[in-house]
Each structure stands twice: as C-alpha cells, then as structure tokens.
Design a protein around this nucleic acid. Sequence first.
DNA 1: CCCAATTTGTTCGTATGTATC
DNA 2: AGATACATACGAACAAATTGG
Lengths: 257, 257
Amino acid sequence: MPPAIIRSAPERLSRPQQVAEAIKSWVMANGWGPGERLPSETEMIARFGMAKGTIREAIRILEAQGLVKSRTGPGGGVFVHQVSEERATALLGNYFYFQHLTIDDVYQIRAVLEPELAAGLAGKLTPAQLAALEDVMTCYAAPAENAEEERAQHIASLRFHALLAEMSGNPLMRFLIRFVTNMLADITVSRKLYVQPNHELWASGLDYQSRLVAALRAGDADQARQILRDHMHNAHRLMRMQETVLTQRFLPEGDII
Amino acid sequence: MPPAIIRSAPERLSRPQQVAEAIKSWVMANGWGPGERLPSETEMIARFGMAKGTIREAIRILEAQGLVKSRTGPGGGVFVHQVSEERATALLGNYFYFQHLTIDDVYQIRAVLEPELAAGLAGKLTPAQLAALEDVMTCYAAPAENAEEERAQHIASLRFHALLAEMSGNPLMRFLIRFVTNMLADITVSRKLYVQPNHELWASGLDYQSRLVAALRAGDADQARQILRDHMHNAHRLMRMQETVLTQRFLPEGDII
DNA sequence: CCCAATTTGTTCGTATGTATC
DNA sequence: AGATACATACGAACAAATTGG
C-alpha cells in the first residue's frame, strides 16, 4: 500500500524561506487577521536572531504571496493582508503559463461550470443585480462596425460572465469562473482575435444573454442551465474556428475583468 | 459604458518588486525556458544599477512565486523554473484561507467537474492506468476496524480521485480537481473527521468506484458520468452530516495527494 | 582528500525615504 | 517645521555550498 500522503522531497529551505514559514505559523497560531500588525523588523531581528537582510527577504516572500503588505513611516510596519483575487489570479496564471492549454480545455471547464452557476443564481438575484447585467449587455446591443468595436464587445461579453460569477454565493465557483474568463480575455487581447467583425458570434451571444437574464429573473433554474449549456457549446464552436492553441504569457497582476 | 478592463489602483511598487517584474519580462522577451540560467547576481547588480540586497529580494519574490530556483556553487545561479503543481496549490490555498468555503461550495464544484472528467476518460485509459486505479481501491477493500484505518481509507479514496484527474489530458481539469481534492483531504486531516468508522460511506464509495472502473474500461462515457454524479451526490450527503463549515489553514506546500 | 574557484547566502553598519504627530 | 518611528536601500565584508582539479 502506497503512503496515503506523499510528502515531496525534503528539499532544504533557505533561511529566509524558513523565516517566512515561521512567521506564517506564528500569525496562524496567534490568530492574527487582516489588518493586524506584525512585530517590527527590529523586533523580528531579535526574535529570530538573524540579520536585517534575511528578515527582509522573508517579508518579501510573504508579500509576493499576497499574505502581507508593508508600509513605511510611524504607525507603519508589516500587516497581515487578505490575498486578493487579482493576486491569486496572477499566481495561478503563472502555473498555467507552463502548461499548454487549448481552447477545448478551457471550454470543457466552462461548459460545466457556467450552467451550474446560472442554475444556482436563478431567482436569487436582486433587481439591481439583474439591471447591472443588462447594463453590460448594452455594450453590444448594436453590431460592431469595426475591429476595435468588435474587440471591445467581446471583452464586454466576457465581462458579463465575470459579473455573473461575482454574484455567486460560492467563493470557489466565483473564483474559478472569473479565472477562466480572465484567461480567455487575456488571449483575445494578446492574440487580437476577432479583428474581423463576426456577426454570428455577436448575434448568438446577445440572444443567449438576454434569454438568460429573463430566465434568471423568472427563477427558472433548469432553463437558465440549458441556455448557458447551449451558449457554451456555440461559443466553443465559434472560438475553435479561430484558434486552437492558446498563447501563454505571464499575467502582470492588475488586469482583471 | 464602463471600461472593458479595470486596471487596479496604480499602487507604486517597491524597488525589488519592480526589478522582479523587469526580470520576468526579460525572461519572456528572450524566450528563456525552464532550466535556463539567468545572469548572475553580480551581473544583475550592474544591469539594474542596484545594491545586492535589492536584487536578492527581487529574486526571492520570483522564487516565492515558483518561477525561479537558485543554486550555490560553480555552475550555480538562478534558473527559470516551471511552477510546480504543489506550489500553485499552496499559493491558491492561501487565497481560500481567507474565503470561508462550506462543504456545499466544494461539492457543488466536484459534482460537475468529476462526472465530466470521468466521461472524458471513458475508453481512453491504458490497462496499466486502469490497474493503478484498482490498486488504490485495494486500500479500502475491507471495512476499517478502527479510527486510524478509517482515516487512511478516506484519504486513499480521495487519492483515487486525484489519480483519475492526473490521467486527464486537460491540464486545467487536472489541476482543478486535484486542488479541490487536496482541499478536502486537508480538511479531513486537520479536523480528524471520520474518527468513527462510517460503514455506509465505505460501502458506497467502494461500490461506486469499482463500477466506475468497469465503465471506464468498457468505454461507456454516459455511464461513467452518471456513476460519478451519483457518487458525488452521495458523498456530499454523507459529508454534510459531519460538518458544514471548513476549517482553513495555510498549506505548507509539500503535502499533496 | 584537499584545495581553489565560483556563485549564492548572510551579516553588519550606515544612510535615505516616508509618513505621522 | 521639526522630531520621531518605521521601512527601504546601499556597500563592503564574510560565510557556505558546490564543482573541478
């Protein structure tokens, strides 16, 4: 019987990494939450018996992971920080930079997550939320007349999905859909797909989305699910015609739909 | 019309962060891939006109993100490194540390992803892969007789799912399922759920998994999908009886199923 | 086995920048 | 405006690890 849990190779950690881990456990042990201040550099130097440089590198490691932020000046210091969605997106994006994802890979996920999301939201959105969705839809109420408009409309239609995800009460669902959506937006921007107006994509996208909002308002979960299933299938088909392999690039944290 | 892409607040970057970003772009611009060596510290000090400490902090930032690794000695230096699954898992786990996920949240995702995974694998696994799955199943062929065995079996059953995910040709699917599965394993370990033998969970899990392997071998995608749907529904029900809110903790990169 | 060269890792002292009072 | 408290940055020296002779 193989060990249930495989602990990866021991892999000696450098001193700053050890300190970073120690600080992390320290924060957890004390139950410090976002906004709370960690001991100052000087105190940490004493606490860990290490030089300033080492402590600073440890802080940098935690900062890169999005776990702390530091401010200068009196009342400044290092503060526990809730990892932001942007940061998490960028860090996970780095992982997929080295995997080669295809359009099919991404749409296989979208095709199951998005319908489930829609079904879960049916009948649970406030009038304000429904209005916000319709507001995004106005961005592509009319067919695009040039490449620039086409691109803007495509991004806006992805924004519709990101907005929908944000309304989910499930943080995992929310993050996953927004991550995948951002990835698609990133591709279209970097590859400049959709340079030629694609009337079919426009018409089908708009139609699906307005029917979806209607179903969400009516509280019809099954219909919402089915609409998004069809939409995903269609969008996949149209996307596949344009490109099969996604370009990868490091996401410079900050761009997010 | 709102801007299509929202760029988050300017937020001045510290010098090391700027350098880290510069190095990242540098690597991309030169098309350096995993294993390739970056210029030495000394060269970077000259290249960027900054002190050693600053350069080192920048390297640490990239190292924390899993993008580089450094080695000492002759022939040593800083090397581009493919972000590992373990690292990506740990970093994303930090994000969810601050979100409060419920069992329901996690199972809503599993319930749609796992059946889709199984359907995609039907008829595509080699005899060796099918044997590997059956091998894991032997870990819980007999009912557990005490709490320790119970726990080991539960982890092994999660390992079955992680192994299945690993066989997917879709890197996104693979990562997402393994991430969620690890998250569940982490919970059960930290909370020590399943301290009391739960015969129903054992019997149903084993039955579902053996039927699943049969369906996969037979190449029956629809049946595989349906089996996993039922399994997820049942596992969700049994888990929900035990706990509703997940404990969160920082994942100390390395533990992975 | 030891020695020398190379490259990262760590330390310390000092000085600068920045925000608060 | 000035003093204070904190992070930030610099530079020089030394330590540790690895490779090859």
